[in-house]
Design a protein around this nucleic acid. Structure first.
Lengths: 152, 152
DNA sequence: TGCGATTAAATCATGCGCGATATAAATGTA
DNA sequence: TACATTTATATCGCGCATGATTTAATCGCA
């Protein structure tokens, strides 16, 4: 009989990856609630705070998300008056996303979030170096997986 | 003016964590499609293959999911005739989940999946040791975050 | 025994993710 | 200029996730 221990949860990194990702998102919830944002909405704003006036596709490239996810999400951000959606005159297919004044102003509140999140990761027994290694691994995986999944 | 570079995507590990988790789940899709399962459904079966006859709560503890996610998911697995849901006679609040013969049999197909997934992670430039470190970090984070979020 | 508190699961509403498809605009080319 | 092809976004359907609430059963204790 084949050894089935390969099927045990603790012998895979995919499950902890999935679980840690969900639990990490939960850490943001109370902080983002203060500014009435979900985590994916916050990510879109991060992208725009870094570079305003990007197309749906460009935002999607940054976040590895497509229009089927972004379009409804962006409409919600528009309803909250944080962004504007404008079709390009030169090419009516393309929608440019721009921050409103309100959307720009929100950045001032958001700058405190990374610090607060970081403090929640202090009592894990992991060192700064561990986190650096962890992030480097994630970035390598992200880069590889992005290529892998865009092949089709 | 405060330095806003803390808000840049690449300066956080939460975003790559979120993205890598999603992309990793996508790697399972073609493999799981062969046995008509989603990734969360596959995880529930992993738990049951390891220990049959568990309650909804027990499965939830393993996967860090609650009944609001599990109940509908388990009903779908029941529709597929992979599990049975049975209320305990001693305590009618508790639902025990049992694999059907079909559910048990599916394990034989599933044993090949971890191997196939592992092979997709070969060309990342990461060594076996890197993966070991990565998994250890994830497990530490998982354990800490589980406590952190169960506090409330 | 009676009844408030607790517990397990289910239900509800909302917002992602994402495969598949549609729409509409722009492009290439015969 | 016609028309097939490509491109950008949108729409649709479904299955998670999850906070909030509900339902129903059990427990604890006066």
């Amino acid at each position: 009989m084949e050894d089935a221990s390969v099927l045990h949860l603790e012998n895979q990194f995919c499950f902890p990856l999935y679980a840690v990702s969900r639990l990490t998102t939960k850490l943001y919830v109370p902080l983002l609630k203060e500014i009435d944002l979900t985590y994916p909405q916050y990510l879109v704003l991060l992208v725009l705070w870094e570079n305003d006036l990007q197309t749906v596709n460009e935002i999607g490239n940054c976040l590895v998300l497509e229009s089927n996810t972004l379009t409804p999400l962006l409409k919600r951000l528009e309803q909250k008056k944080l962004i504007k959606r404008m079709r390009k005159k030169e090419d009516e297919r393309i929608v440019t996303i721009a921050l409103t004044e309100q959307g720009k102003a929100l950045k001032n509140h958001a700058v405190s979030i990374p610090q607060k999140i970081a403090s929640l990761f202090k009592n894990t027994g992991l060192t700064e170096e561990d986190y650096g290694t962890f992030q480097q691994t994630l970035l390598k995986l992200l880069s590889t997986l992005k290529k892998e999944t865009s092949k089709n």
